[in-house]
Structure formats: C-alpha cells, structure tokens
C-alpha cells in the first residue's frame, strides 16, 4: 500500500450563476483591482492508502460522484499525487 493525496476540485458548471463569486469580484473591484472575471471552486485534499494511483483516483472519483460534487450543477476533477 502507498499513501496518496487525491485533490478533488469541484466547480460550478459553465453557465451556472455564481452569486458569491460575482460579489467577490465586485469587492475586488472596489479595492481597485482590474479583472475580467472570477470563478470560485472548492478543493478537497483526501489522503488515501491504495495499491496504486489509479485505485486512489477511482476512490476519490466515487467520493466526488456520491457527495463532494452535485452533478446537477458541478463539474469536478481529480488529481492524485504520492505523499
């Protein structure tokens, strides 16, 4: 068994309104920053013991499918690195 960290990034699908990101963008602009757009995402770092990276990725993928993301509104990606 090897120790991995699976990083699961969950973000709203393109086209789904993100009022919190819009509000954050406006606050940055009030501070004088110039920016065209701002997108927010949630990142989960999951430490997993698995035989190999594929197994760790498969497990993290199922975590995203079943809880970390809501497939109706979210896309997600999984990246695995050895710890």
């Amino acid at each position: 068994m090897t120790e991995f960290t699976a990083t699961v990034t969950v973000r709203l699908k393109r086209g789904v309104l993100d009022p919190e990101a819009e509000t954050t963008k406006r606050a940055l602009e009030r501070l004088g920053f110039e920016l065209s757009a701002l997108r927010a995402a949630d990142r989960f770092e999951v430490d997993i013991e698995a035989d190999d990276a594929d197994e760790a990725a498969a497990r993290a993928d199922e975590m995203a499918e079943r809880l970390l993301a809501n497939p109706t509104i979210h896309d997600y990606e999984v990246a695995v690195a050895e710890r």
């Binding site: 789904v16 309104l17 993100d18 009022p19 919190e20 819009e22 509000t23 809501n70 109706t72 509104i73």
Partner: peptide, 10 residues
C-alpha cells in the same frame, strides 16, 4: 429532480 443553490441575490 434538480438542485437548490445560492440565491441570485447572494
């Protein structure tokens, strides 16, 4: 079906 998420007004 569907999802309920952050109000457009935030």
């Amino acid at each position: 079906p569907g999802a309920f998420t952050t109000n457009a007004s935030a």
